[in-house]
Design a protein around this nucleic acid. Structure first.
Lengths: 168, 168
DNA sequence: TATAGTATCTTTATCGGTAAAGATACTTTA
DNA sequence: TAAAGTATCTTTACCGATAAAGATACTATA
């Protein structure tokens, strides 16, 4: 019995979703494991990695990026500040805002990133650059999809700052 | 000035990692948002989705799958049980173990899955089945990579049960 | 078959996150 | 410019997660 084209498509899409769910679960596990390796709590790790990329951001932006409440972010910044990893300063243009500036990257996180990069290079060894670029395109597509799902949840919550970072 | 082949590769790999990090962050956000939509806490949602796929699992297996401590899983199972979503029973072959059995899927989670599936179908509308299959392959590769990273953290922690589910 | 060792779940103290209210500061409008 | 409205961070009460210790049951070894 021959399978129809559309049902094969649906089966492919179902497999795709299954793989995405698996990836989501693993991502969370890995986030926690990585933070554990670095001896830092997962939230603080994500915050520092992000801060390290952008240099500085407001407390509110960090809350949106990490998906935490502003209250939790206040506490996280307290921890980072007392660990000497980041510092607060008031935004001179808007004194309600608190700008958080990265001071230094926890050395274990940097070391971990090097290890993981090496591991990923080994994994991707047998793929051509063209294939890699196609993979990246595809990741961007699913990331856009995830963003739409998240916006489906709350239109104003994440969109503004997130889009401003990842569009280009 | 011409860019060397290896440095282009490294740039592609760096972009790839960047996209993976973004995807991890979005995955966590979406997990929480989805649970919020379903009116259930994220841990309970992940546990129920998993239980729904496999039918039943021990408390320890659920802890490993979700990345929670066994203590947290005890509390989660208490919640699920008192909400009538799952039930405990003692493993007759090993009375230390507690087997957790899915009773029913929260209706909001099922509804949400249908919505998201539709959304994903729209997203993938213009890709051929062949391309979809290539995407799935690639997801499986990165998932295997994530698993290796996690095992790097703790060899005995996650591996056994996780591998037994996803190898075939 | 005792005994020691290991595995599995539960309990408890502490910590991190959420939600909601509070304190300031900016913005709009009359 | 005064008042009302909105935005941003902090505080607080409660809840969920962790880590470590406890309770029970299986396993290996003499």
């Amino acid at each position: 019995m021959k399978t129809s084209k559309t049902s094969r498509r649906q089966a492919a899409i179902a497999s795709f979703m299954q793989a995405m769910r698996e990836e989501m679960r693993l991502s969370i596990l890995w986030g926690n494991a990585a933070a554990g390796l670095a001896g830092i709590n997962p939230t603080d790790a994500i915050t520092m990695i992000f801060l390290n990329e952008v240099g500085e951001a407001t407390a509110g932006q960090l809350a949106k990026i990490t998906g935490l409440t502003t209250g939790a972010m206040t506490a996280a910044i307290d921890r980072l500040e007392s660990a000497g990893l980041a510092a607060r300063k008031v935004d001179p243009h808007d004194r309600r805002k608190v700008i958080v500036k990265a001071i230094k990257m926890p050395t274990q996180l940097s070391a971990l990133r090097r290890t993981v990069t090496k591991e990923l290079e080994d994994t991707l060894l047998h793929y051509s650059e063209t294939e890699l670029l196609r993979f990246i395109d595809m990741k961007n597509i699913t990331n856009a999809f995830l963003k739409r799902c998240i916006n489906l949840y709350d239109d104003k919550h994440v969109r503004s700052f997130m889009n401003s970072r990842t569009k280009p």
